[in-house]
């Protein structure tokens, strides 16, 4: 047992750099944010599990396929594992915003699927980290602790602040 239960990470803007006006469609466009890799492996030591919850409407728009996304994610996971980190599962929403599905954040379908897959998740000891208000809304709906990161206050900075209080 670790100090904290489940860490829900948004992907773009938290783990990797967002691209201006377009989607990250393949691994050559995927650039880890400084410190994110080390942060993930440090967070593995204090969280029971880490999952990614990411909106990827580029799939519904046809700019990438689910197969493209899966390849990208496999490559991302390889690098994370190589640096000593582990992601337990990746959840993505492939739908368009206007499809009003139940998984696209701020809706909570991806988090609920994680609860089905990992029935022991304890919301009050779990965190959702995102860079947009829709991430934070989804986290709050699920009674998770939420943290909004940006270019200055990154995942790495938050990890340092969390480790400082343990």
């Amino acid at each position: 047992m670790h100090s904290y239960d489940t860490l829900f990470l948004d992907r773009d803007g938290v783990i990797n750099k967002k691209l201006e006006g377009r989607y990250v469609c393949n691994f050559s466009e995927f650039k880890f944010i400084t410190g994110a890799l080390d942060a993930i492996s440090e967070l593995n030591n204090i969280f029971n599990r880490i999952v990614i919850v990411t909106n990827q409407q580029g799939i519904a728009k046809g700019v990438m396929s689910e197969a493209d996304l899966n390849i990208l994610h496999t490559q991302m996971l390889n690098v994370i594992e190589h640096s000593g980190g582990k992601i337990d599962k990746i959840y993505y929403c492939p739908h368009l915003e206007e499809m009003d599905c139940i998984c696209r954040k701020p809706k909570t379908g991806m988090i609920k699927n994680a609860i089905i897959d990992f029935p022991n998740i304890i919301a009050e000891n779990s965190f959702l980290i995102g860079d947009s208000d829709t991430d934070i809304k989804a986290g709050k709906r699920m009674s998770l602790n939420t943290v909004k990161v940006d270019n200055a206050f990154t995942l790495s900075k938050w990890t340092d602040s969390l480790l400082a209080v343990i």
């Binding site: 139940i102 909570t108 379908g109 988090i111 609920k112 609860i115 089905i116 998740i121 919301a123 709906r141 699920m142 009674s143």
Partner: peptide
């Protein structure tokens, strides 16, 4: 409904 969200119901 809030409790349901927390537990993972739709």
């Amino acid at each position: 409904l809030e409790k349901a969200n927390e537990i993972g119901l739709t």
